[in-house]
Design a protein around this nucleic acid. Sequence first.
DNA 1: TGGAACTATGCAAGCGTTTGCCATTTTTTG
DNA 2: CAAAAAATGGCAAACGCTTGCATAGTTCCA
Lengths: 344, 344
Amino acid sequence: MEAQRGDKNLRPPTLTDVAAACGVATSTVSRALATPERVNIHTRTRIERAARELKYVPNSQARALVSGKTKTIAVILHDITNPFYFDIIRGTQHQSRSAGYTQVLLDTEDSARSELEMIHQLRQPFDGAILAASRLTDRQILELVGELPIVAINRQTRGVSSVFIDTPTGIVQALEHLISLGHSDVCYAAGPDSSWPNARRWQALFRAGEQNGVTIRKIGPFSSQRTSDGAAAADAFLNTPSTACIAFNDLLAIGMLGRFQQRGVRIPEDLSMVGCDDIFGSDFCNPPLTTLTSPSEKAGRVAVSKLLTLIDGKKEQTRSGATILPTHLTVRASTGPAPTERNR
Amino acid sequence: MEAQRGDKNLRPPTLTDVAAACGVATSTVSRALATPERVNIHTRTRIERAARELKYVPNSQARALVSGKTKTIAVILHDITNPFYFDIIRGTQHQSRSAGYTQVLLDTEDSARSELEMIHQLRQPFDGAILAASRLTDRQILELVGELPIVAINRQTRGVSSVFIDTPTGIVQALEHLISLGHSDVCYAAGPDSSWPNARRWQALFRAGEQNGVTIRKIGPFSSQRTSDGAAAADAFLNTPSTACIAFNDLLAIGMLGRFQQRGVRIPEDLSMVGCDDIFGSDFCNPPLTTLTSPSEKAGRVAVSKLLTLIDGKKEQTRSGATILPTHLTVRASTGPAPTERNR
DNA sequence: TGGAACTATGCAAGCGTTTGCCATTTTTTG
DNA sequence: CAAAAAATGGCAAACGCTTGCATAGTTCCA
C-alpha cells in the first residue's frame, strides 16, 4: 500500500536527455544507437554508457511516427478462446517475436461487421494483419488488401496471400480409413455456413464419397465454438442411418462424444467419430478422438513470415500465393469396425 | 496475384487533409472530433462529413506521442498456450476492449530474466501491465510498480494491486470432500517451486490436514505446463500409500489420469483425483475431473478494471489492495469412496 | 452604446525520433 | 604539402496530433 505509483523517474529519459548527458546533439545519439558505424567509436561508447546508465528506452511511438512503421502486426480471429487458435497463436507469436515484431490479438466476436470496421482502424497502428478464419466476403478482403499487407489463414481468395491447412485432403484419408473399417454410410456434421473451411471440408467429403461409392449425408449447420454445441449435432446424427460421423471440428466432435455417452451410445462399438484439427483435449477425451491433425503452430509461423516479406515489400516477392500445409490422420479410439446392425 | 499491395491511397488521410478539405485549421478539426461542443455546430457537421468521406482515422502513434498515453496495456504470462490463461485472457480482452484499450499478450517463455527485461521495455508503449502468474521476486515487482501501473494476478506482494483466485480456501473444501468419502491419506502433486500459487495451495492443504487429523504428503515438484507432465506425477503417486491426490493444476491432474489408465489403475475406484482451476477439458476428460473451479474470466476482468483505475490515477483510489475471488468445488467423476484396501 | 463575457477559430509550440544536408575536422593521396 | 576524400557531428525539418494562447466576432446587460 505504498509504492503503487511511479513517484521517481516521473518522465522516462529521452534521446535529448542522453544527448545532454554526453554533450552531443540528439542526432548523434540517434545515430550512435541506430547506425553505430556512422559515429566515432569513442563518442559511441560514451553514448552507449550514458544510455545504459539512464536506462534509456527508445519511444516507439515517436519512432513509429516518423518511420510510419509500428513493428506491430494484428492477428485477427473471431474467438480468442476457441482452442483451435491456441497453436496458431503460439506460432504467430514465436515468429513475430523473433523478427522483432509485436503481435496484437484482436477478436471480432464473431461479427463480420466489426471485423471489417476493426481492420479499417487497424491501418494506422499495424504494419500488417493476419486474418485467421475470416468471415469476410472476398470483396471485403480485397478491399483490405489494398490498404494493408494481409495474410489469410484457411481462406483462399485470388490475390490474397494465404496459408491453407489442407484438411479437405485429409478428410479423404479419413473416409478411406472409415471405409476400410467397413463403414458405407457416413455423415458430416457441418459447422456454420459462414465458415469457409466448412464448405471445403464438406465438398471434399462429398466428392470422395461419390468416388468411393459410399453414401454421404450432411447434418447441420451447427455452431461449433464450444463443446456444448455438440449435443444438438449428436441428436441429429442419431436420426440418420449412418454408422460414422465426421465432424467439422474437434470441438463439435468432442461435444458429440459427450452427448452420445449420455444417451448410452457406445463409441466406437455403435458408431465411429472423426474430428478435425486435433485441438487440445482431443487426445484425452473419452474416448480419445480420431482426428485430422493440423499443423497449426506451423501455419501461424508461416503466415507471419509471409506477412513480413509482404511488409518488407520486395516487390518481386509479391507473389501472393497460397501455401498449403498438409494434415495427417491421427487414429485414436473413437473409430472402429462398422456395427453389423445399427442399434437404435 | 494482383492487388496484393496498397496501390491506391498510398498515404492515409491526416487531420491536415481533412482540414484542407473543409478550409479550416487542423486544430479546429481536432477539436471537432475530440470536443465537439467546442466547435460551431455547422462547421462541426461539415468536418464530420469530410472526415467520413476521406475515411479519416486518427493516427494513434501521433496521439500517443503528445498525450503520453497509448491506450494499450500489456498482459504478461509465461506461456500463452497454457489453457489456464485462456479464460483470463478472454476476461482481460473484454474488459480492456470495452474501455477502449488494446491489449497485447506477451509471453515470457518461462524465463524470469526476460520477464523483467521485457517489462522495462514496456514502459514506453504501455499504459500499464497485468502480471499473470509472475515468476519475479517481490523486489523486482516493486521496482516495476515504481515505473508502471501494475496489477498482479495470483500473486500477492505488499504494495502491489492484485487479484487473487482463492484456490487455497477451495482446497480445504476439497479435502473435506475427500474426507467425507473416507480418505485419510491425501497426497499433493506439486507444481514448480517458482510458482507462488503452488506454495499457497500446498500450505493450505497441509494446514487443513493437520486440523482434520489426516495424513498429507507431497510429491514433486513437477512441471505442469502440459498434460504429458502428469506421467511422472502419476508414477510418483503410486509409490505413496495415499488413496487420493490433489494436483497443483488440472493440466497435471489430467495427465495423471491418462497415465493411471495406462497403468490399469481405475479412477475413482482405486484412487481419487482432484485438480485445480477447471480448465477447458476438465469436464470431458476420462473420467471427468473433480476440480476447483476458478472464476478466471472474472479475474481477468477485475484485474483490468483495477489497472484502469490505477492508470487514471485517482490518487485517492490508489489503495493497492488485493481482490480475492472465491473458487468452488466442482465434483465430477474422478473422486469416489476410499478403497477398503489400496490395491497395488 | 460601451465594454464585459462569451463563442468560435486560428496560430504555433511541442511530443521524441529520424534523416537529409551542411560544416568541420581528419585522413588519404599524388 | 595541397587538394581531394572520408569521417564525424550538428542543425533543422518533418511525422500527425493536441492544446495554451491570442484574435476576432457576437451577444448581453447596464
